[in-house]
């Protein structure tokens, strides 16, 4: 599926919904742009006037303070005006349709919706129905896609490892319910990673995982970790115990939790990542989460630069780039 919805007639990125169908060059450009923004975020005055006069609306149908905060900071550092709309506790619970909610906020002359929604396809639906001058940025839809998270993870990997073509990457845990895993797999394959593995019990993998996602599947954690350069741990939701996916957190940690002993099976300079929030003692041991291989907090700080890069690429009104910033 090449998602033509994401590009305008001139072939420029109009919405950022999924990494499916995005060319490698574009992913590299996002990372290059993010690189130039990291200096901005480290300055005393952490602002560039790139999106001055633009209005970004964080439209969160699902609560997530962390993700919303990084989008808000990214937009503010680009000098955009930011409006936070938390729909989980407002309009749709009063029976307003998704489309009506969009129409109402659209009428306030905004430029970008940053959308988070519990259902797969929500960002696509909104992108297909907004006015032509509005861009939609997917901040996570159901189990489908979380493309900015995947890009900040790629950016973090690149900063540590450089060339993707040598890398073996293991994604561990609840792939079935994970939009992060789906987007990361797409990104890693597009960027030419040597091998992408998923490690999980069968209850936490999509039925046709190799056909639909393009990965090597491991059900044994130790085998799956052998020689890998990057380990991405996924968050395990508590409700998986009640849905007959798993018997207990204890047994899960025994078999699929990342401990120091297990980490020794991976390459000596392995990096450990997690999209957060982490469940210590469920999918990851504290000594690993806080240990020397962990880059989990760097992921968080990289998130702002990467989201600035994506917002500016999608929203730039003209091609005259801000001096010193690669667009």
């Amino acid at each position: 599926m090449s998602d033509s919805l994401q590009f305008d007639r001139a072939g420029r990125l109009r919405h950022f919904l999924t990494l499916e169908g995005l060319p490698r060059d574009l992913l590299v450009r996002i990372m290059d742009t993010a690189e130039s923004f990291t200096s901005v975020t480290e300055q005393q005055v952490k602002k560039v006037p790139l999106l001055r006069g633009k209005t970004v609306v964080n439209l969160f149908f699902e609560n997530s303070t962390r993700t919303r905060t990084t989008f808000e900071l990214a937009a503010k550092r680009l000098s955009a005006d930011v409006l936070n709309v938390n729909i989980a506790t407002s309009a749709t619970s009063k029976g307003e349709s998704l489309l009506d909610t969009i129409r109402n906020i659209e009428a306030m002359h905004v430029d970008m919706f940053v959308v988070r929604h519990a259902e797969s396809g929500a960002a696509h639906f909104i992108a297909a129905h907004v006015q032509p001058h509005i861009s939609v940025l997917n901040a996570g839809d159901g189990r489908h896609s979380h493309p900015t998270q995947a890009m900040l993870d790629m950016f973090t990997i690149r900063r540590h490892k450089g060339d993707f073509s040598r890398l073996k990457v293991a994604i561990v845990g609840d792939v079935l319910h994970s939009r992060v895993a789906r987007s990361e797999i797409l990104a890693l394959n597009t960027l030419g990673a040597r091998e992408v593995r998923v490690v999980a019990p069968r209850t936490l993998l999509p039925a046709s995982v190799t056909g639909s996602l393009g990965v090597r599947v491991y059900h044994d954690f130790d085998q799956g970790l052998a020689g890998v350069d990057v380990i991405i741990m996924l968050r395990l939701q508590r409700e998986r115990m009640t849905g007959a996916f798993l018997p207990s957190e204890h047994e899960y940690f025994e078999r699929f939790g990342l401990t120091e002993a297990r980490l020794a099976k991976a390459a000596p300079d392995v990096i450990v990542m997690h999209p957060g929030p982490i469940n210590r003692g469920v999918e990851i041991d504290s000594r690993v989460a806080d240990g020397p291989h962990s880059v989990i907090l760097q992921q968080v700080s990289n998130g702002i630069a990467v989201r600035m890069a994506i917002m500016s690429l999608v929203l730039r009104g003209s091609d005259d780039a801000f001096p010193g910033v690669v667009l």
Binding site: E20, R143, H144, R182, A207, S208, S212
Partner: peptide, 15 residues
């Protein structure tokens, strides 16, 4: 359908 497309789009599948 619980298959390739549902797996890719993250839509809950019906086996």
């Amino acid at each position: 359908h619980e298959g390739v497309v549902g797996g890719r789009l993250g839509l809950p599948g019906i086996p």
